[in-house]
Design a protein around this nucleic acid. Structure first.
Lengths: 243, 243
DNA sequence: CTCCCTATCTTTACATCGTAAAGATGAGAT
DNA sequence: ATCTCATCTTTACGATGTAAAGATAGGGAG
């Protein structure tokens, strides 16, 4: 961290000059700045505004640029304002991850519902999974690569749980079994772990550029999506190992 | 970052009192501190010492505690000393990741060589993969979860490449094919991506605690290793999806 | 043998970060 | 109209990465 950034911390003081010594006599009206209805000064939905600002910062500056202060700056409030709403950096990241999980789940559900053939149905969710991560790498990073998440937060726990439930359900449909919420057979657990590990592993490797090596050696113009498809179909059509 | 740490930055000054104003008249002999041959003051292998210190810090304090200054503290040198050897935090992390990859490759090779039956041979590398990550989660995190790595560094590039080559080779053996260094068929690429994604995904999910949900629902006492085995065997013995 | 060059290490400095604590602000209750 | 208190701002502190300047010797040049 601590990037040598030219962006001054006191950028805001341009429109709200710091009173160095003078007492609180005639404070410049904040209403002038909030006339654009961007962030309605004292009241309004600062919490939501901060989450949206965080998403914007994440898309613009990536994971490294997503700091508490940067988010506050983006929202046009003081750097300590987020504390009151999220308590912590962990709090903000966790709530943002929850937002991401909801988008993620919605994308997969939509893609799954649009499928018609069984083959399409089997490939729809994984493809949507990878597509979301490629479209929102920062968000995916928050959701899956960050140790600074607090899963005890209800919103995050619930959203992540929904993601898992969707996966388990899809596996159950493919196996034509009822996946119980309580207990799993080893075979069921293995099937779920397998599907999840494969797609999640593929996604992280892809986002980290670790698959470039493979993609570059494949027939000209083979996309990551094509490789994903082939990978997922392999256990069905591929040859078995051993003599 | 910026943990509220009680460890003072000036811990070293206990044995090497800071000369506040006095000129460089009689500097306390550094040889007294280096008499234990830990870090031979001015000369010696500071580079190696820093890498070992970094590994120690990583195992003790985890990824969050692995900072340039902490490593310098651990090695008993000033906080700016690492700069000259690694240039950057990225530099240090990259060299450390290279060390990790070499350990990692050695562990997998050893496990693979010890296998006797074809089934053992097929499971040896994945098991060693996960075992290494579980034994050295911090190191694995550096190697695979960090965006602050510079793969253009020869040592890191080479070590990571060796890891990939070992994987590709193992897949080639299982398929009884020769895996060319230049080109890959889609089927070959899919097999490699599949094996790597599955094991890597499983590992990251396991380290992140995301598999607890599954493990807790499995028959009493099912270990992660057992789940991994079942997962890897599934495409061979499991039932196929669809009607 | 002496002197100086240069790689190595230390000091100092600065911008940034997360977080705590205290001071202002204003909306709604009394 | 005044009070209360949630909300937001200021200020402060310790931590980090990194740049730049000062100190320290090892080793070659004279």
């Amino acid at each position: 961290m601590a990037k040598t950034n030219t962006k001054s911390e006191t950028a805001r003081s341009a429109r709200a000059p710091r009173k160095t010594i003078s007492a609180a006599a005639s404070r410049p009206p904040r209403g002038a700045a909030s006339a654009k209805t961007e962030t309605p000064y004292h009241h309004g939905a600062l919490r939501e505004a901060l989450l949206q600002a965080a998403e914007r910062v994440l898309e613009r500056d990536g994971l490294a640029g997503l700091t508490l202060r940067a988010v506050a700056r983006e929202a046009g409030v003081s750097h300590a304002a987020p504390t009151h709403h999220f308590g912590d950096l962990t709090g903000l990241l966790s709530e943002l991850a929850a937002v991401g999980f909801r988008q993620f789940n919605a994308a997969m559900a939509a893609s799954s519902n649009a499928a018609t053939t069984p083959l399409q149905a089997a490939l729809a969710r994984p493809k949507a999974y990878v597509a979301y991560a490629q479209a929102h790498p920062g968000m995916y990073g928050i959701m899956f690569r960050t140790e600074r998440l607090d899963y005890s937060r209800p919103s995050l726990h619930e959203a992540a749980e929904a993601s898992f439930a969707g996966l388990a359900n899809a596996i159950g449909m493919m196996r034509q079994e009822q996946i119980s919420g309580d207990a799993l057979t080893l075979s069921q657990g293995a099937a779920i772990a397998r599907a999840w590990s494969m797609v999640h592993g593929f996604t992280t490797l892809l986002l980290d550029g670790r698959l470039e090596d493979i993609l570059g050696r494949l027939p000209e113009g083979t996309t990551a999506e094509r490789l994903l498809e082939a990978m997922l179909m392999a256990p069905i059509s591929g040859k078995l190992p051993g003599p």
